[in-house]
């Protein structure tokens, strides 16, 4: 009898299911939250309106502004994926690539909000590089 009791207690201790039932679940309460405003526009520049109108529906500008220096081919790959797979509602009248490649993370004082402010003016060099590389309307 004692042995049986011991075996039972041992079984209790070792059984993951039985011991798990000892866990008391929290009482879940309905939630209703507000997500913060997605923030800022892209820095001003040639075709900035197109980027603002075509990209911000799906993601905020910081996704682009936080990217590292990428080659033209890498940017084209990204934009192609956005259009072909993610069905980005890109305005056909616009060049589909030049404005993405041409955007460089450059902070402009009149357009800064929390994200763009995080990108300091030292990135101007990269914007110039982009301009040269893209051979399209760019920041200058």
């Amino acid at each position: 009898m004692v042995q049986k009791l011991f075996a039972f207690l041992l079984g209790m201790a070792l059984s993951p299911v039985l011991s798990a039932y000892a866990q008391t679940p929290p009482v879940l309460k309905s939630v209703n939250v507000t997500l913060p405003d997605p923030g800022t526009l892209f820095p001003a520049g040639v075709n900035a309106d197109a980027i603002n109108n075509n990209c911000l529906a799906c993601h905020s500008s910081d996704m682009v502004l936080n990217q590292p220096p990428l080659s033209k081919a890498a940017w084209e790959g990204v934009v192609h994926k956005m259009i072909a797979v993610y069905k980005a509602p890109v305005d056909d009248a616009m060049s589909r690539r030049s404005w993405i490649i041409s955007i460089g993370p450059r902070a402009l004082p009149e357009n800064r909000a929390r994200t763009v402010r995080a990108i300091s003016l030292k990135w101007v060099d990269r914007a110039v590089y982009c301009l040269r590389d893209a051979r399209a309307g760019c920041l200058s």
């Binding site: 405003d37 923030g39 800022t40 526009l41 109108n53 529906a57 800064r112 909000a113």
Partner: peptide, 14 residues
């Protein structure tokens, strides 16, 4: 979103 985004430029920086 296009319209909404136009309003964002006037957002105050914090």
């Amino acid at each position: 979103i296009g319209v909404g985004s136009l309003g964002m430029a006037a957002m105050p920086a914090w």
